[in-house]
Amino acid sequence: MNRRALLTSALALLAARPALAKGSAQFPFQLSDSEWRVRLSPAAYAVLREEDTERAFTSPLNDEKRAGIYHCAGCDQALYDARHKFDSGTGWPSFWQALPGAVGNREDNSFFSTRIEEHCSNCGGHLGHVFDDGPAPTGKRHCINGVALRFVAT
């Protein structure tokens, strides 16, 4: 297969990929696309609604050390306790577990690999991905886009 055919196939796969974050009826909190665009910054919209990824080491939340709760920037649902955050060295806020029932997962086969995508269980907003290289006790690394989060100090 030549490069052009490979690229065309890859783009077709990406376009065919189901987008849970784009207003599916399965999420309790729903807004129209225009309402999401008003509610979110362009960067947050790109991540939460279009499954984009922010550049590593750009989020101030990566260095946040205070006690508190991380909420979905889209719907304000509580997602992660700061006690479960750790420095993964990857450039994104990382957690070894989410709050119970706060997130959902699905298989993500984009970019020629299989990963586990994580989204807000309330609005379906794309948060990031989960990997099996985190610390005890779960061994998981929830690698989350900072722009998808809002931190509330306690």
Rank of each mutant, 00 (worst) to 15 (best):
N2W: 01
L6Q: 15
A10N: 11
L13Y: 02
L20V: 09
A21W: 15
G23F: 11
S24D: 15
A25C: 11
A25L: 14
A25W: 12
Q26R: 15
F27S: 04
F29M: 03
F29Y: 15
E35I: 06
E35Y: 10
L40Q: 05
A43S: 05
A46F: 06
R49C: 13
E50D: 15
R55I: 04
R55N: 13
A56C: 03
A56M: 01
F57H: 05
S59W: 11
P60R: 10
Y70A: 01
H71M: 04
C75A: 02
D76Y: 04
Q77H: 09
A78Q: 03
R83L: 07
H84M: 12
K85P: 10
F86S: 05
D87R: 12
T90I: 06
G91W: 01
G91Q: 00
L99D: 09
G101H: 04
A102V: 02
V103I: 15
G104P: 03
N105Q: 13
R106P: 03
N109G: 04
N109A: 03
F112A: 10
F112M: 07
S113D: 00
E118Y: 08
E118M: 14
C123S: 07
G124T: 08
G124E: 10
G124I: 06
H126G: 05
G134K: 06
P135Y: 14
A136S: 12
P137C: 07
R141M: 11
C143H: 15
C143D: 15
V147K: 03
V147W: 02
A148I: 11
A148S: 15
R150P: 02
